[in-house]
Nucleic acid binder design. Structure first.
Lengths: 207, 207
DNA sequence: CTTACGATGTGTGCACCGTTTACATTAAGG
DNA sequence: CCTTAATGTAAACGGTGCACACATCGTAAG
């Protein structure tokens, strides 16, 4: 795929850019990704990436999209098809751990107001959203799947960000895991009342 | 306080900088705040702010700290001393609304990995954390206040960010309010089981 | 009143950044 | 072989954070 270095054409600069970007993000945790630095890392002139990405935002969106895919894999690795609250808690813990293991990437994925009209991004986030909804539907058939999946996603997402910003105890992975687990378990045991609340909400909406 | 313009010295540049920064953040929602733009807005040379702030991060921290204080006021305005789940839900809704009304400021407050060892910042975030903990203790005396306040904060914080990133339905403030309210209510009706889970967690920790 | 001083704002300069514009190289197809 | 479109390069513009030397001014000691 990538021929011996020295050739004028790179071979697959498009992919090499996101790879270089990923490496830079992992190396220095800062989310301040420089297009020029990416170009340098890829061994190419500063403006070469513009042949493949309209602007910095476009590259960032591509990186974010790949991040979403990796996150999805990470979650699936934690448990392919959760059916119990405990298994879903494991997935939640994996979510937060991913954020803590790849802080810069996670920030690029979520904390940047970059172009939301990116086909790749929308597809990737929709996939995750659907994945969560599917789990919730399986584990918790009685409830409003939309509302509940949103709630559990928000809870886990908030835990991830608060940890990322040093607002919570991140001293050891065990502490983090316990906290996330407890929070998710609490949500799930609330199921009957939650579905009741969801029903009340629907009534309110249709009047 | 600020004398007639034309004087060499500004009078209170330190405060003027955060004011200018706030204005710029409100005007264009982008969280990309330029120190030079702040200086221009304050009617001062590009490097003048360095007399009062060590670097860009320091200014951002000051802005973030003020943001925390405003957020605290906003929450207190929603309800000064919540004692019921419904009142706490109102506070939660105010939290998310603040994020949606001041997106750029909210991003500076949370989504920037800026200097976490800022005295002002730490104090401000500690104040909010303590505020939430106090409410939880009042509304829900039986439970582990630390764990539960973290959980409710994370839930609300996650909702705020998902809304900010366009991952959820932000079409009308009512929709947002309903969603946040339902989520918080669900959490609170889970109280007995949550305290039980917290107890189990404590046991686990001390063995 | 004078004078020295410290606090505050200015000007200059450097390295880096994103982006545009014109140009060079090369792979691929008629 | 020659044309063409794709791909990478070079040069340039305006913007940025920041370090340095310099200018201005309130103030307080002599």
């Amino acid at each position: 795929m990538s021929p011996e270095s020295g050739s004028y054409h790179h071979g697959d600069l498009r992919a090499a850019c996101v790879r270089a970007a990923r490496e830079l993000l992992e190396e220095d945790g800062s989310a301040a990704l420089s297009l020029r630095a990416v170009a340098r890392r890829a061994g190419v002139s500063p403006t070469a990436p513009y042949r493949h990405y309209a602007d910095r935002d476009a590259l960032l969106s591509a990186v974010a999209a790949q991040g979403y895919r990796e996150l999805a894999e990470h979650l699936a690795a934690a448990h392919p098809a959760p059916t119990t609250p405990e298994e879903l808690a494991a997935v939640a813990i994996a979510y937060v751990r991913f954020a803590l293991e790849h802080p810069a990437l996670f920030r690029v994925m979520f904390a940047e107001p970059c172009d939301p009209t990116s086909e790749e991004r929308l597809a990737a986030t929709a996939a995750i959203s659907e994945y969560v909804r599917g789990i919730v539907r399986t584990v918790f058939p009685g409830a409003d799947a939309d509302a509940l999946s949103t709630t559990v996603w928000a809870l886990v997402h908030g835990l991830a960000f608060l940890h990322l910003d040093g607002k919570l105890d991140t001293s050891s992975p065990e502490v983090v895991a316990d906290q996330v687990g407890a929070a998710v378990r609490a949500l799930f045991t609330a199921s009957p009342t939650l579905s009741q609340a969801a029903a009340a909400h629907s009534e309110q909406a249709e009047k």
